[in-house]
Simulated assay, not measured.
Amino acid sequence: MDLENFWAIYSNLVLTVGINALLALSIWLTLSCGLLAMANAAFMGIGAYTASILTMNAGMPFPVALLGGVVAPSLVALVIGGPTLRLSGVYLAMATLGFGEVVRVLILNAETYTGGALGLNGIPQLTRWWHVVGFLVLVLLLLWRLRRSRVGRAFEAIKEDEIAAGMMGIPVMTHKFIAFTLGAAIAGLAGALNAHLTFFIGPSEFGFDRGVEILTMAILGGINGLAGPVLGAAIITVLPEALRAFQDFRLMINGAILVIIVLFLPRGLWDPARMRRWFGRRPAALAVPR
């Protein structure tokens, strides 16, 4: 199979890998600040519907629609961040899951704009491969720079011990807002790109299952580096296609692979510390005696 035929068959799959990588990075950002927030699927839905309505109903150009898909979930994150980010752990996860259900119900009831349960059909296919690659590279560079900045170090301190970080003078709530809002913006961008790739969006695409899938991508790949979420997104996206020949057992094999990785590689597939232990140590036979 030559490259042209491969792209004709698998282009949507490849672009979906990039979009899912953006989603995995969005939840990686909140996890890096110690926030187990499960609202990324809802933010993705807000971005997807906002961008789609702007292009279909308002006739806006694609760049404006993408901007709307980023700004809308960011504003929502700022509004709900006040009451929810005071929670932590499983309570924060439950609160953000509840927010996701509220978004789903609002989408169902706003039939005039969202199409209700039938969703939006006929969305113009404006997403191109360079959009996905460009935004993925841009987000990776932004998060790489953020991780090595003063804000990134504050995120790490809050993740390790929130109380100690506060006693050291770090404004904990401000940094939580930054992580939560920026994660919402990235998820909204992914939703806007996905909506203009698949022609159709519906409320069922942004529910609990999608939220768990996004979290699985990040945990599977590993949250100790930026490469981990991208690797996890690629595996979760490609695995169903690779197991298509085992259609009757595909879900079972998929689950078994995830269980094995969680049991034997709890820090994810991409763990820089483990790689340094494996590849950074010289064999004893080659060690130079002192």
Rank of each mutant, 00 (worst) to 15 (best):
G225W: 05
G211Y: 10
P203H: 11
I186V: 14
S204L: 12
A165Q: 01
A218T: 00
R148P: 08
L231C: 15
F155Q: 04
K159D: 06
E156V: 10
A165L: 03
F200E: 09
D161V: 12
A227L: 04
K176Q: 04
H196Q: 07
F200C: 14
A165F: 01
L143Q: 08
A195H: 04
G188F: 10
V151A: 04
L226S: 02
A154L: 13
R148W: 08
A164F: 11
A227F: 05
G202E: 15
A154F: 11
M173Y: 12
R148F: 12
G152V: 06
R147K: 12
L193M: 08
V230N: 04
L182G: 05
S204R: 01
L182E: 00
F155C: 06
L197R: 14
N194I: 15
L231I: 14
A184E: 14
K159P: 11
S149V: 07
T181L: 14
T237V: 04
I158F: 14
M167V: 10
K176T: 10
L226Q: 02
A234R: 00
G152C: 05
I163K: 02
L193K: 11
L197M: 11
A190V: 14
A187P: 07
F177L: 07
I235C: 04
M167E: 09
R210V: 09
A192W: 10
F208D: 06
L182K: 00
T216G: 00
N194Q: 09
G166C: 01
G169W: 05
